[in-house]
Every structure is written in C-alpha cells, then in structure tokens.
Design a protein around this nucleic acid. Structure first.
Lengths: 155, 155
DNA sequence: AATAATGAAGGTCAAAGAAAGTCAAAACAG
DNA sequence: CTGTTTTGACTTTCTTTGACCTTCATTATT
C-alpha cells in the first residue's frame, strides 16, 4: 500500500510549486482531507520538511492558527562548501549521508545518475567492514565525492 | 521433491519476465503465499538474486515496506559484470582501481563526470584511514558503484 | 475596562502497528 | 558427514493513532 505520509508529502510539494515556495495551510483541514490524525501532518512535516530537507516551518496556535512552510533557497556552491567544511564532519551515519545525497538530488545540484553513484558508494553494505571506522570512512568518501562535484562548474 | 527455495526462485523469475526486469514485492505476502517463514524469502534472495547472479535488490522497512528486485542486463554489461563478480576481487590497489575506471571511461561505459566521481571515491586519500583494510574497502566500494552503473539501464 | 470562560487552533509524546532484516539452530538431501 | 534449506525468535525501521497539553482570539461577566 502506498504510504499515506508519502501521499501527503507529494501533495504539499505540489502546493508549494504552485505557490512559488511558500505556503500556509491548516493542519486540521489537511488531516480531514486525508482522513488521518492531525498529528500525522506533524509527522510528515518532521520527517520530510525539516531544515535539513531544505524547508522551514513556522506556525501559530489558537483561533486563526496556521502552519507556514517555506522552501529555503540556498546557493549551490555555498551549500556544497558548507557540507564539505562543516556539515558532514568527521563521521556520518549511512542514514544521514543518504539524506544529504537525496537533498542534493532534489535541489537539482546533481543528476539522478550521480546521486545513484554516490549513494552506492556510501552504504554500510558498500563499505563492507563492520567497524566503528565505517562512519569515518563514509564521511571521507562523501566529502571527496562532493568535492568532485564542486569541481564540475560549467562542465 | 522440489525444494521450496527453487520454486520461489522460479516464481520470482517469472514475475520479473512479466514486468520487464524490475519488480516490487511484499515479503510477508510472498511468504504467506508459499506458506513459509518470511526469512526464507531473504534466503532465496541472498542465494539466488545476488549481484553476481545478475540482480540488484533494494528494500524498505516499516509500514508500506517493500523489496525491489532489479534484473541487471548481464549481456549488455558483460564486462561490468565480470569486474564485479570476479575481476576486482576482494582487494584492489588505488593504482589498479583507477586504471579500471580509466578504461571504463575510454570504452564509453561511463561519462567523464561519472568517471571523475568514481575516482574521487577510491583514492587512498578519499578513504582516509591508513590501514591494510583500505584495499578491501576500495574493492567493495568500486564494485558497488559499478553495480550502480549496471542498474542505470534506461535512466 | 479588566478579567474570566470558551472554543478553535496547533504541539507532543508514547504506544501500537506494519513491514523488513539477522542469525543461528534444526532439519534435510545427497 | 557435509552442505543446503527451513524455521523461528529477536531486532530495526518507519508509520499511524490517540490521549493530553499549550496557545490564542473572541465573547461573556463583573
């Protein structure tokens, strides 16, 4: 079965496109529309629209309350540079690393093939060895690959 | 008496034919259908659908989870498949690895950007750690990336 | 005018549910 | 006896649900 959370995610993203990266919505209304618990909206926002996903959320409670989602626009080079110099750090989990690559893909900083290539290099399975060193190695490789991407400028 | 694992293998292969080499299935559903333990599905996949058998598996847990099986086009990717299943082996030096990638580039298996990306991931410097494990890790990562290239069909 | 009550939002968190993964022991086939 | 298959207990990951909490605007009361 298709996950409801994924459907809601897509829905919000399509709304965001129509409204040029900024959007205000009503939590209960949306929950009603999808016939789910209101807190599921929070779940979707937390797991798919966090800052690390490239979004910023603000909200207000009480009568006339709302949730506003803003699509952050970051400069590609700044972002890549930030990742290599501080974002990734000296160790990174598989989950966090894949998340970064997915973001690079969604922001169109890299092509799907490149994303696939990078992802394939940083999974636990790829690295193979069972050791705490894994996260260190992964960080090194990911930074190295992103550095290669930075060097692509203009082909 | 035909072994169940063989029956499941055949079943999955027939599904793959119907669906043009790519297929998503539910582990529990399949286990249910064959009245076996769910983990037997994993066994079948591990012993008959590995990369060296010419397949690539990805999956997701949790609600709405799935297992996806992709059939790698071994004929078309003969050389790549050879590299992954025997050519590279369990350890490889930086020099030999870079040489292989260069060759893939020259023979047009991969684009210049991809070659650059792959190279950036397999240097001693990228892997970072000073250890005899380096060559093992490099072999693993290189094989994983070449497998990703094999899975590109049509993308 | 100041305060209290009400209702309409949204927030949090933990438990339950729905998958898939791992591993090793037991069973079996040759 | 040896290698492969089958089973099942336990783990991990991700999603869904619901009970309870907080905030705010509006309206009623003093």
């Amino acid at each position: 079965m298709a996950r409801l959370s994924d459907v809601i995610e897509k829905f919000i993203k399509s709304l965001l496109e129509e409204s040029e990266g900024e959007l205000e919505l009503q939590r209960n209304e949306l929950a009603d529309y999808f016939e789910c618990a209101p807190s599921q909206i929070n779940y979707v926002l937390a797991t798919r629209f966090s800052v690390s996903h490239g979004y910023y959320i603000e909200s207000r409670r009480g009568g006339g309350g709302y949730i506003r989602i803003v699509c952050l626009d970051v400069d590609k080079n700044n972002f890549l540079h930030y990742l290599v110099s501080e974002g990734i750090g000296s160790r990174i989990t598989e989950h966090d690393a894949l998340h970064i690559v997915q973001r690079l893909l969604e922001q169109n900083y890299i092509a799907p093939k490149s994303a696939g290539l990078i992802k394939s290099a940083i999974t636990d399975k790829a690295i193979g060895i069972p050791s705490t060193l894994k996260d260190t190695i992964r960080a090194n490789i990911l930074k190295s690959m992103i550095t290669a991407v930075m060097a692509w400028q203009g082909k």
